[in-house]
């Protein structure tokens, strides 16, 4: 199949990231996860949340993605509370949780089609191209239940190539990937950041040196 656009033009976003957290506090089951957290996330940032299990990494990530409203404080997108401009915000950020939302009876292509249905500018060719990029060429029409866990992860990650959003919020994206996959993802994150994108990530995986990498440590506070 002839490819319509070069691969680095697939994810072309127009806006830039301006996300900030103000005095955010969150407790779960009477345990304070973080308190009065201020955070500013801008163009070109690659932020890795680190900390032991149960430190609240996923909670903070979901809260910044607007999936969790059970906290004190405020998260703003371009100066506006994200709950007030959620439609707008949702179009500008991509969230991939540790559940990949892959339907097993559907093919990778069908799964991708569902994922990008909110972005009408994505073309059918782009999906094929993205699957080729994540080394799933030839698997486009195979039901996902016949793919390995790592391959299913790649289907989910193929969204990074085609959804035109400046901000990526990724929860443990390296899970189940092999060495080549990890290298590819690291490279792709670096490319996104250098193109003016922004990545917010939780991972126990030590990221290799990528310009702009910032680590935020969440500890279990007493």
């Amino acid at each position: 199949m002839p490819l319509s656009r070069p691969i680095d033009q697939l994810n072309r976003f127009t806006a830039h990231c301006d996300l900030s957290a103000h005095q955010v506090s969150c407790e779960r089951d009477d345990r304070i996860l973080f308190e009065n957290l201020d955070l500013s996330i801008n163009k070109g940032d690659l932020i890795q949340l680190v900390g032991p299990n149960g430190a609240g990494k996923t909670t903070l990530l979901r809260l910044l993605a607007g999936l969790n409203q059970d906290f004190d404080g405020e998260v703003r997108w371009h100066g506006k509370n994200i709950q007030q401009c959620f439609q707008d915000y949702a179009r500008q950020r991509l969230y991939i949780g540790h559940l990949s939302a892959i339907k097993k009876v559907l093919t990778p292509l069908e799964n991708l089609r569902w994922f990008v249905s909110s972005w009408p500018q994505v073309k059918e060719d782009d999906l094929w191209q993205a699957l080729e990029e994540v080394t799933l060429a030839g698997y486009e029409d195979v039901p996902c239940q016949q793919l390995s866990a790592g391959q299913q992860r790649r289907v989910a990650l193929a969204r990074l190539l085609i959804t035109p959003t400046p901000l990526w919020i990724l929860d443990e994206p390296f899970t189940a990937l092999d060495k080549a996959g990890v290298a590819w993802l690291e490279g792709h994150l670096a490319r996104h950041v250098s193109a003016g994108g922004t990545v917010l990530i939780t991972s126990h995986h030590a990221l290799s040196e990528i310009p702009g990498l910032r680590q935020i440590e969440l500890g279990v506070q007493k």
Partner: peptide, 10 residues
Amino acid sequence: GTLEQWLASG
């Protein structure tokens, strides 16, 4: 995780 994606979609 489909539900999570719904909610994330706005």
